[in-house]
Design a protein around this nucleic acid. Structure first.
Lengths: 333, 333
DNA sequence: GTGAAAGCGCTAACAA
DNA sequence: TTGTTAGCGCTTTCAC
């Protein structure tokens, strides 16, 4: 079994010192072209690959970015991760991804430790539904590890946050529902009402109706289980006073709601309207495609990455940034 | 800005040697209970987190597993990655994920270098469509780095591979099509015919018809672009001699084909049948849901991980394992 | 039961 | 232009 080449092995073969070899390999101006050539040729031949662990230990820069998400297996995070990895790799960063699960604060805090052990240069976190204690996160920032929350962020104001302009997204949805003269809307809000994202969405959704269509009946439900959404929808459409539209804050909720609608044999939009918050992939699978307010994981990732680079450049004040949502007309209202 | 604690700092505060502290922290039997207690308490207080870089450098074990995929943003890989990370984390492994893109052999080989630099303990790879040169991969195994190809694997026999029993999957699909007496099947094969997975699927699909329904007309297309699938389908269903069923080897192909069908106003299964190879998420969104041959990223990940652990335990011979596909009846045939 | 010392592979200040 | 040296944080052998 062949071993990894090291600077020492190269230097012995070449009759040079380790430091000369090291410098030659990184084109240090002090080294003569001839030496550089010799060194690089042998390095190629011996398939030298620098040992990142040693470099990190020595330089105290890991070139590692961490991401902690509830689940990888989620279209939104998938897009976020794909874009983030793509951006990061351009600058020589690698991305360490850890998932915490939805109701697992303990795992989240273990993941935080793993990130510390790996001495990540920066960290992106989307919190669990149960996350309340922000002290562990504060410790990170105290240690000067840049931390950026995205999408699901804690309410505290002392952090960098990148979110969708959620009031915006929910307001847009409400505006569309009002425009289509919906008078009885079932609102399915995915996630715990504790999360700031859920709160904001709810408040601005309600607000929009209060101001522009106070006569509309709002039937709001918070749920944290996909099956619940299907049940709630089923009960609503089977009741004496069924809704004429449904608003869903996420893909899985929408899928469940539509399943209930289709099982009942109702037509969209003829019998009932549907609008969702989504990145658009799932809504466009339906015919007619579901109208949605777009929230793109790609955009969020780009913004989050850019913000991190700013922090690396010394702009360390905390900021809360948001990406505007856009309405995409389908045929479901 | 607070610094990370180190063994040295702890040892100084405690008036002990670094080695004693190190041993106390890992419950070495030589150390007295009293000392252990003192050490652990201070470590807690000072928020000591071991430096993984130093440990790796010293022990030559990275506790890092690498995965190289064409894209993260793909339901199949997403499921694979989610399961793999979940399994790996149980045993203290972290997972480094890199994406190569579809037509980017260069990026793939760069990713391979990054994995080497990070001295990953083991590596999972699903290759690019363009990957032909297997030398870079051979080098890894020569160095004793366990390498397991999954899903998209190169034809060479000298590797560990974990695949779906693809002949199986395609055969199952063919059997169902024959059972439903389809006489003119449009076969949409995603991916280059160069890939062993595509080859196998095609061969066994054709074979099944040859043996059991030779009169069925097969109209087979290989494509590497989603829009192509929609175009091919459109042309086929608008022709004088339209197919009575479509077989798709993947989700995106299926989505495109169905889009063409729906735009034309045809009904599934009334006017045309559809069957696909998929993990089931997308097929079940349709009404009626699309019949599919299930290929689960979860199962594959579990098997791949188990195989890697076997290799770590010394069972280093190369093996080709496969997961059986299962038919899931929808209402689309 | 504890300590001293070497060394993993690399970088960088200083010397020559 | 190149070499010497120290040290990043940790584990581990050997000594006491």
């Amino acid at each position: 079994m062949k071993q990894y080449s090291t600077l020492k092995k190269l230097s012995e073969k070449l009759g040079l010192s380790v430091s000369t070899v090291s410098r030659a390999l990184k084109d240090h101006p002090d080294i003569s072209p001839a030496t550089k050539k010799r060194v690089k040729e042998l390095a190629e031949l011996m398939e030298y690959e620098p040992n990142n662990d040693a470099i990190r230990l020595r330089t105290n820069k890991s070139k590692l970015l961490g991401v902690i998400v509830p689940h990888i297996q989620n279209l939104f995070y998938e897009h976020f991760l794909a874009s983030l990895e793509e951006e990061a790799s351009k600058m020589g960063y690698s991305v360490l991804i850890l998932q915490s699960g939805e109701k697992n604060v303990e795992k989240e805090s273990k993941n935080l430790d793993i990130m510390k052990r790996n001495r990540v240069d920066g960290l992106f976190v989307s919190v669990t539904e149960q996350t309340e204690d922000i002290k562990p996160f504060l410790k990170l920032t105290e240690m000067g590890i840049p931390l950026i929350f995205f999408d699901r962020v804690p309410p505290a104001e002392t952090f960098n946050k990148i979110c969708f302009a959620d009031n915006n997204a929910a307001t847009i949805a409400a505006t569309q529902l009002i425009k289509h003269k919906k008078k009885h809307v079932l609102g399915l809000f995915w996630g715990s009402p504790k999360l700031s994202i859920t709160q904001k969405r709810f408040t601005s959704f309600e607000e929009a109706f209060k101001n522009n269509s106070p006569e509309t009946i709002l039937d709001i439900h918070f749920h944290m289980d996909v099956n619940e959404a299907e049940n709630i929808t089923r009960k609503a459409i089977e009741s004496n006073n069924p809704p004429d539209a449904i608003f869903c804050t996420g893909d899985s909720t929408m899928i469940s709601a539509i399943r209930a609608i289709q099982k009942k044999g109702l037509k969209i939009p003829g019998d009932i309207g549907v609008i969702a918050i989504s990145n658009g992939f799932i809504p466009e699978l339906y015919t007619p495609s579901i109208s949605y307010v777009e929230t793109s994981g790609h955009k969020l990732a780009k913004l989050a990455y850019t913000r991190l680079m700013e922090i690396f450049d010394g702009k360390t004040f905390t900021r809360e940034l948001s990406v505007d949502a856009v309405f995409v007309e389908g045929g479901s209202l």
